[in-house]
Design a binder for these strands. Structure first.
Lengths: 221, 221
DNA sequence: CCCGGGTTCCACCCGTGGGTCCAGGCCTCG
DNA sequence: CGAGGCCTGGACCCACGGGTGGAACCCGGG
């Protein structure tokens, strides 16, 4: 978060993507930018590590899907051995796993590939300055996983479930088939099915999968 | 995430801070920036809402601690009634509660007050482009709260699941039957069943109910 | 006392789910 | 070019799940 940034020396950037059709034009267009100097282009993680070892690097623009050594693992090693190098992820995938893995590995930015040139340049500058830039959808997903927890305490099940029905729902939530539930409750499978039919109707549950979700959401499992 | 950004019209920015000693110099120095036009300075949330109602605004630079109507609530209203206006929080406090509350309310950036002018300008530009900029410490805290929960319980899925298999598992976790999954993915039901069989074998999942639990535990649903 | 709800169980039907085997198209890698 | 992985699809089988319509028992309360 230092003041003198924009007008000092150009930023030394490494571009990493296994697809040459993406990597080469990207490197070329970035290199045209005033304060950006693309010092290397790598097709996998090892290429990135080599480039960082070879000379001083400010920012690595990293694809996640790469052969041999992928972006996550490369990011992890960089933040271990070269914490002064900022990693910005640029990938087509924006699923929770990838986002959490990348940021957890130490990435200082996460862009999807529908980001424009200006978006990428801005993220590189921010990362070099110690800031972190996320695409809108990425931040939304990150936030969604944060707030997925406190809602779990809600009891959105109807109150008129009988104790036995609750018990059955709990066991369904644990993934047990009807036979196992029957054995556990010392009743016949037919009885379990009756309870299930009743509680499905009461709680507006469509099928077993739905029941599992509701049981977990209600804190029964 | 649109391409033409930097060189178009200047960004219309509202500065909100209850302390005049912070607000005025900040507004002045930002107004000096080429592509930034400070159209209003507000001392509380109502001032911000008035300014947004009065004319088009691209970005609000928002302090959290303000009298009458604080930054969180103002952000919430803006993202409800004026989702086209991006909010960047600028505050001295970087505790978990404030960060989560602000981002949850719809803020597209979170800076602490040791951010320099360039950092603030960069965050404003990013927010206007739909990106999100966080201070390094803010991202670290956000990540820590995410990682406190789901990493402990989740992520016990084998890594060799194909993207398609993950996708199918996610939809199973949402309670969808095979036919609905097939329609959603534009493939036949037979294909869905193949993916399911493969991923069940890989991830040691017994049946659909089990799959729902695992998907939720892994944070896919 | 009998009515009602909860619990237990039966028989039957049939749709979906889960498992197996196979096969073609596509891509990447060696 | 061949090998192998991924995605796609079809065929078949059978078990489990879900729905229906019963029926019996026990218990508490109007």
């Amino acid at each position: 978060m230092s003041e003198p940034t924009e007008s000092s020396r150009p930023l030394r950037v490494v571009v990493a993507d296994d697809q040459a059709a993406v990597r080469e034009p990207l490197a070329a267009v970035l290199d045209l930018t005033e304060d950006i100097d693309v010092v290397a282009a790598a097709a996998d993680g090892n290429g990135v590590l080599d480039a960082v070892a070879a000379g001083p690097v400010d920012v690595v623009l990293m694809d996640l899907r790469m052969p041999v050594l992928d972006g996550i693992e490369t990011t992890r090693r960089l933040s271990d051995e070269h914490p002064e190098v900022a990693v910005v992820v640029l990938t087509t995938f924006a699923d929770d796993d990838s986002i959490l893995a990348a940021l957890g590995a130490g990435a200082r930015g996460y862009l999807t590939k529908n980001a424009g040139r200006q978006d990428i340049v801005r993220a590189i500058r921010a990362a070099a300055a110690g800031q972190s830039v996320l695409d809108r959808e990425v931040q939304d997903r990150l936030l969604a996983t944060v707030r997925a927890r406190p809602t779990a305490s809600g009891q959105q099940l109807p109150a008129d479930l009988t104790p036995r029905e609750r018990e059955v729902l709990t066991l369904i939530g644990q993934g047990l088939p009807n036979r196992a539930i029957a054995e556990k409750l010392f009743v016949s499978e037919a009885t379990v099915k009756t309870h299930i039919n009743n509680l499905f109707a009461k709680a507006d549950i469509r099928d077993r999968a739905d029941a599992v979700r509701r049981a977990i959401a209600a804190g029964l499992a």
